[in-house]
Amino acid sequence: MRGFKVVEARDANHAVALLAELAPSVKVLAGGTDLLVDFKHAPHAPEVVLDITRAEDLKGVSMTDAGLRIGALATHTDIMRSPLVRESLPALVDAAHTIGAVQTRNLGTLGGNLVTCVPSMDSGPTLVALEARVTVAGPGGRRELPLTEFFVGPRKTVLKPDELLVDIIIPKKNVGKPTDFLKFGLRKGQALALVNVASSLWVDPKKTFVEPRIALGAVAPTVIRAPEAEAYLEGKKITPEAMSEAGRIAAGEARPISDFRASAQYRRDLIAVLTRRTLENACARVQDVRPGGSK
């Protein structure tokens, strides 16, 4: 590993000011669970590392007028321990729990997971199924965009070198929405996902699906929605057959690859099964929650 200079940011605005000064040969250090591993292997480490770990305004989980706000610096452990998240969106806790090992979860941040943007990221699908939005800060101020537009490709986001991911917001209407996340890896602990899936849904009094949302990970260049499967379910009566069919449709919407870990066909099989199961599990959670945002 080559030597590099470290600059420390006091808060988000200070970090953005420093980025404007130092870009493009600067990397942002949050948990370091991806960045420091990359440094060890990359021949060209950046000249400067901007350490944002002391920026308190980038941390924490809170309820705002817009919805549930998770600071980009919130660690996976912070999310697992947050009473707000545990109560309103337990699927986010389930997803955080599958990331790496205890040490990775203690250091790694939600923002870092999204910015690194590997297709198999475990925090992506649940957030996408909940239609999360992100706030990005740069020299021109702050802008907000849907998480799905934040992702561009494998290890690529819309962030410019002088921009910073500030927070992730789950819109108020989806706080408390019954949601489920499932991951399939090659072992129980410390595994990359072959496929991960999250589904969220409301159920109306006629026992039909309302606003079903399905997100698939590790089966396309980025985490994706399965809009055809969602459209198929919208307004449909909740039956095992409907959920199986939605799984089959979702499998057709993905673009999985074949590699040494698994074949594309096996990944499609997994998408169909996991999608159906997340729908079943989300339905089972319906009676557990008060549908505050339901129409």
């Binding site: 072992r187 129980k188 040494f260």
Partner: peptide, 16 residues
């Protein structure tokens, strides 16, 4: 070797 690391050479963890 395609999988010369413990990320891709899968061994049981304590959870397995």
């Amino acid at each position: 070797q395609i999988n010369p690391n413990l990320t891709n050479y899968i061994m049981p963890t304590s959870l397995d």
